[in-house]
């Protein structure tokens, strides 16, 4: 079932075009990564979805049971640089958020305590937020975004500002949350997107340049190259490789030979058979999987 459908969304700041006519939709239960370089329009898009900014043009449709419901009660949102009331304790802020999200008073404290446990800041829950570290604030931010059990959780650059440890913790938390919620998160760090998301939206200069399920995109951008390295006598083997029927061309970069081929399967068979028969001194043989980075560069550069 389609959870969110965005049509021709456009946003101008004055005369500056931030988001240019983007459309996408995704189903519930997915984890969608909105990736793109800084200034691509990721934050603006998320803020429009959260209702904080008004689109210049276009529509945003949530799948909702009751048309009268406030859309804001269906989403949880964590901004890129979440700010809290420094004079509140973590627990107080979470309870306050919960009450504003219409959780019954009898339940909100119990839920807050459970959630503080789950995001791993329960020891610090009665300390003022001004004493929290960046990672703790991020986790409190996630907690306040999910306390009302939203259908869609939106996270704006949830791990970009964290150290490796904090980043690992938040990614693990997201991995767990994926089972209960639909997640839409933005990042400019491609390996993070690679790790947790099932679907990608590539944003560049306010436009979606590529979108789709992760595995489909991988196949689409599959490069047909095989990389080889040899112990010695590189040139001799390059010459031999070029005579093989499945090889289109070769190029040498440092000590690695990049072999462009028509079909990975055929070329693998032919190269390995030759290598075995002629006892090539191979040190490395790898089939190049399309990395997100390649995908991104290709999509952006056309």
């Amino acid at each position: 079932m389609t959870l969110l459908a965005v049509n021709n969304l456009t946003k101008y700041y004055g005369k500056t075009l931030a988001v240019n006519n983007i459309s996408f939709e995704f189903e519930s239960g997915r984890c969608v990564a909105l990736i793109g370089p800084n200034g691509a329009g990721k934050t603006t898009t998320l803020q429009m979805l959260a209702g904080l900014l008004k689109p210049t043009e276009g529509t945003i449709q949530f799948q909702q049971d009751n048309k009268k419901d406030d859309i804001r009660s269906l989403i949880g949102y964590l901004p890129q640089f979440p700010a809290f009331y420094p004079w509140m304790t973590g627990r107080e802020f979470l309870i306050y958020s919960g009450k504003l999200s219409k959780i019954p008073a009898s339940e909100v404290e119990k839920r807050a305590d459970k959630l503080l446990e789950r995001v791993g800041i329960s020891e610090a829950k009665n300390r003022r937020i001004s004493t929290y570290s960046g990672g703790m604030k991020q986790r409190l931010g996630i907690a306040q975004a999910i306390i009302h059990r939203p259908k869609l959780l939106m996270l704006d650059e949830p791990v970009s500002a964290l150290d490796p440890l904090g980043r690992r913790e938040v990614l693990t938390l997201m991995e767990e949350l994926k089972n209960d919620l639909t997640i839409l998160f933005s990042t400019h760090i491609l390996s993070d997107a690679d790790e947790v998301s099932d679907e990608l939206l590539l944003l560049h200069q306010g436009e979606i340049v590529e979108a789709g399920p992760m595995d489909e995109l991988r196949t689409k951008y599959q490069t047909t190259t095989i990389e080889l390295s040899f112990e010695n006598n590189l040139e001799a083997y390059v010459a031999k490789l070029e005579q093989l029927s499945s090889v289109v061309k070769t190029s040498v970069d440092k000590n690695i030979v990049h072999v462009t081929v028509d079909s990975i399967e055929e070329a693998r068979q032919e190269i390995l058979t030759n290598a075995l028969e002629e006892k090539w001194p191979l040190t490395d043989f790898s089939v190049n999987r399309a990395s997100l980075e390649d995908m991104f560069m290709k999509a952006v550069n056309g």
């Binding site: 959260a50 904080l52 009660s73 901004p79 700010a83 009331y85 958020s97 504003l100 219409k102």
Partner: peptide, 13 residues
């Protein structure tokens, strides 16, 4: 200015 409004105003208030 501090940005905390961004967290509060996305709540259904």
């Amino acid at each position: 200015k501090s940005g905390v409004a961004e967290l509060i105003l996305v709540k259904p208030i």
